[in-house]
Nucleic acid binder design. Structure first.
Lengths: 240, 240
DNA sequence: AAGTGGTCTAGACCACATT
DNA sequence: ATGTGGTCTAGACCACTTA
């Protein structure tokens, strides 16, 4: 019995285009060659190439303009592929907090985190505590847990702190694109540490978000607990 | 200067198929005629018809099985197209709260709701206050606002309370399928009314969810504010 | 006017489910 | 073996942008 793995042409083309984007051949904001040129290059019909471009457009890697061309989407905090942490201020203006790492360590996975990351109980994880600030005010305090097994020895050695833009980091270092997540949401009263970090009163309720992020194979990539000062900032999400 | 409104063939076909589904010609779970039959019926090519079916599949109206056929998706709370209100108890078991309507009225749209529903300031809305309970305990308190213009005079007359399953109601009555939403999330301290409705202490923080729901044309269908007792129940969301 | 993406066609063949 | 949806092609024409 032979198992034949059938991969449609357009998916092969799609993957190759994506690889070339990540390799830097077409940097963000640059325009791709037009459909006919690319189709000829790959030796496929325009329709097949188009189907590849359409999927990449649906996944927000590309942006197409009729009459103009197809450009590579920006990958940054602004127009993130995965719009996590949509935080707004009181004037309904989106804010882009900066990150301050308080703690960075390698530990055995805490018991209550095991289920979220779906890993063995004796595995190790990278653990970081960070605060995120905007205009010198603290917006949120968060703890991040990432399975150590994703990191190569070399990366671990060279990395002194966790990079700020984690989802971009996972993509470039692990090749894992976070494209979905589940969140458990709670309103909680602040603990002592929260009061200090967020500079709030003990009666200020906090929005607690427990987020598990998954890559396209539904492998958990990270677990994150955020406590947000929702009296000053709005946490917005899109569901679809 | 002539303004020509250009509507692609496949969108016209798509709309007609959707109309026929809502009209009951193809009830949920039933199979549509195959691509060639439908294409011939509409006088379009198979490719054009396929594009219509593909969009309807992406919007969860249809489910396609290779080698089998295309069926109309089920509409109910369990296999809901749009899994709103994923509420879990302390044992991580999903709960399905029942609804008690406290108040049901037609009012002028409140000023602070106008922006969410994107309607004129003098329009009227259906307003309802409801609590949702599980095992005789109150899970959440919510207020719902729906533009009156969606309701026909006949429906308004016969309707004494808002139905429990609102998203199914919008679909059958308005033909509007809610398939995306934005939520603004906050942690708040309870007001007097909340303390009574939810039977909690004044120090119990509540998870407040302001949700605007949209149909496939991105028309706002409803605005809803929920206050959830997140010390007893977990509000879970999926982002993708 | 030229170039790009968007729509549409007619036909071929492939993979999958059922008979 | 038959029928279904899935992929692929080659070519035509339309709508939009830019020069």
């Amino acid at each position: 019995m032979k198992k034949i793995t059938f991969t449609p042409l357009y998916l092969q083309v799609k993957k190759d285009i994506l690889d070339r984007i990540f390799a830097g051949e077409w940097p963000p904001e640059s325009f791709l060659p037009n459909e006919f040129v690319l189709a000829k290059e790959y030796g496929v019909s325009q329709g097949t190439l188009r189907k590849a471009l359409e999927e990449l457009t649906a996944e927000k890697h590309l942006i197409r303009y009729q009459g103009k061309g197809t450009k590579v989407a920006e990958i940054n905090e602004e127009s993130s592929v995965f719009p996590f942490y949509l935080l707004y201020d009181k004037e309904q203006k989106r804010i882009y907090p900066s990150t301050i790492t308080l703690c960075y360590e390698i530990i055995s996975v805490p018991k209550d985190i095991v289920e979220f990351l779906n890993i063995a109980e004796d595995e190790q994880v990278i653990h970081a505590e960070r605060i995120r600030t905007h205009n010198e005010k603290t917006v949120l305090y968060e703890e991040v847990y990432i399975p150590k097994k994703f990191f190569s020895a070399q990366i671990l050695e060279n990395m002194k702190v966790l990079p700020d833009r984690l989802y971009a980091f996972y993509l470039t270092e692990f090749g894992m694109r976070v494209n979905n997540a589940t969140e458990d949401l709670f309103a909680v009263l602040p603990e002592k540490a929260d009061i200090k970090h967020l500079n709030i009163s003990e009666n200020t309720p906090l929005l607690m978000v427990q987020r598990t992020s998954y890559d396209s194979n539904n492998t958990p990539v990270e677990f994150r607990v955020s406590k947000i000062n929702s009296t000053q900032y709005t946490y917005k999400i899109n569901i679809s």
